[in-house]
């Protein structure tokens, strides 16, 4: 087995999606951990200290923080603030939620957006780019 290219935490409430993303990433050599709730995702990140976090924007089910909120928390957390976050959502969706894109203090610190449905090509390319730029 080739060396792990890196560690990734995937946070999304769509179980099917998480599974197929995990399969894909593992097939190219990443180590993948996943959570289905935003808070759980945060805890998992703290625990696993990944190289990249894949984060969904909206989580169905009982009320709680959404992806944007979590990404902000990540940015504020000393242990996590340097970990790049990639959003599993289109800009459209983010904007629909009412977040505006003008950069200011409350600007969500997200490296990239990947629209759903996720194309494997796009996912891998984006992750590569982000990790490269961080390297």
């Amino acid at each position: 087995m080739p060396e792990k290219k890196g560690r990734i935490v995937v946070v999304d409430d769509d179980v099917q999606l998480v599974e197929s993303v995990t399969t894909l990433l593992e097939s190219v050599g990443y180590e993948v951990f996943s959570a289905h709730r935003a808070e759980k995702g945060f805890d998992l990140a703290k625990e696993k200290q990944p190289d990249l976090i894949l984060l969904d924007v909206m989580f169905a089910g009982p009320p709680g923080p959404d992806g944007i909120e979590i990404s902000r928390r990540i940015r504020k957390d000393p242990e996590l603030k340097d970990i790049p976050v990639v959003m599993l959502s289109g800009v459209k969706k983010v904007l629909e939620l009412g977040y505006d894109m003008t950069p200011d203090e409350s600007f969500m610190p997200v490296e990239a957006f990947i629209d759903k449905p996720v194309k494997p090509e796009k996912l891998l390319t984006t992750i590569d780019e982000v990790l490269e730029s961080r390297a």
Binding site: D14, L24, P120
Partner: peptide, 10 residues
Amino acid sequence: LSSAMMSLHT
């Protein structure tokens, strides 16, 4: 749909 496509493309 997303997941299906994801898996399919994979």
